[in-house]
């Protein structure tokens, strides 16, 4: 049985907006953005946002909810994603490797159909929105596999319809050019200029410990149920061994060194690690301030 421990970092766009408002920060770069809901919130509130990540579906999602200012998926377009189109041959065996392990045969077939339909969309914005919507379906199915009697049975296409349709409300504009890129932090930070760099640092050996739902969705997007996302990080600092404190600190320091041109750097961590990050940020910044609304939500803010 798959391990779904509900563990995730609390990345709150509204909290970041409060921090930015108090410091007159109008643009931000997040080089480890993950699922960019926080960037969507910030964009919706007028802040120019740039994100980067090594996992492609995060970037595709960003194209839907961060870069995309106008394009939505209308009812007829959603219908063409969630159901088999007549006359088309679908790779319904593409995810057969997951059959009986994580999903039922019907669910695997739908994953194949959706993969083909989403890949067939011509707009990056629409593709991103579809990926975001269908990701919720994947999470729902996996959760239901753990508690089959406690969650409602919803037909796959209906569930997908509902989740994709509601992404329409995430589309907005802030009259600024917002970007996402599939790149490591060096490339992302080097390509942008902004008032602030925000990041929630990857944990030690983060690639190995990635949430099942994250790597499975990347595997779905790439059409390879056996994909291992560790390979994405192989040539990056966080892909090398970062299980010991020394090498992990060096990895974080190299990120902080790349943020020198940005007036602010905000590192989100937890109370347990706050002292470590204060120590790491201090040599790179003239002043360091810590804002700690919760033990599991601490912001180390460095200013030039």
């Amino acid at each position: 049985m798959i391990d779904l421990n509900e563990r995730t970092r609390r990345i709150s766009g509204s909290r970041l907006a409060d921090l930015f408002l108090a410091r007159d920060i109008g643009s931000v770069v997040d080089p480890f953005m993950g699922m960019p809901n926080h960037l969507n919130y910030l964009k919706r509130h007028g802040i120019q946002v740039h994100g980067g990540d090594m996992v492609e579906w995060f970037v595709r999602a960003g194209e839907g909810i961060v870069v995309n200012d106008f394009t939505v998926l209308r009812d007829s377009e959603v219908a063409e994603i969630v159901e088999m189109l007549p006359g088309r041959i679908y790779p319904i065996d593409l995810f057969k490797g997951w059959d009986g392990v994580f999903f039922s045969e019907e669910q695997c077939a739908y994953l194949g159909v959706w993969h083909a339909n989403v890949r067939n969309l011509r707009s990056d914005g629409q593709t991103g929105l579809a990926i975001v919507g269908l990701w919720h379906v994947l999470c729902y199915w996996l959760q239901k596999a753990l508690a089959p009697d406690e969650m409602a049975d919803v037909p796959p296409s209906e569930l997908a319809w509902r989740y994709i349709r509601e992404t329409e409300r995430l589309v907005c504009t802030n009259n600024a050019r917002n970007t996402v890129r599939r790149a490591d932090f060096h490339a992302t930070l080097g390509a942008q200029q902004a008032d602030c760099v925000y990041f929630s640092p990857p944990g030690k050996n983060a690639a190995k410990k990635a949430d099942a739902r994250v790597w499975m969705w990347e595997a779905w997007w790439q059409g390879n149920p056996y994909l291992n996302i560790e390979q994405y990080y192989r040539d990056t600092i966080f892909g090398q061994r970062t299980s010991d404190d020394g090498s992990y600190d060096r990895a974080i320091e190299s990120v902080l060194a790349a943020t020198h041109d940005y007036p602010y750097v905000i590192v989100q961590t937890t109370a347990a690690d706050a002292a470590r990050f204060e120590r790491l940020v201090a040599p790179h910044r003239a002043s360091v301030e810590t804002v700690a609304p919760y033990p599991e939500e601490v912001y180390v803010i460095g200013k030039n």
Binding site: E6, G13, S14, N37, Y41, H136, Q143, E166, P293, Y294
Partner: peptide, 26 residues
């Protein structure tokens, strides 16, 4: 204040304002 901030978040990540998910929601 933070309970009010996040009282409309949904476990599946489709709530608002932050679309927090799972145990990211207090």
């Amino acid at each position: 204040a933070d309970y009010i901030r996040w009282h409309r978040e949904s476990f599946d990540g489709t709530g608002y304002p932050d679309r927090l998910r799972w145990n990211g929601i207090p």
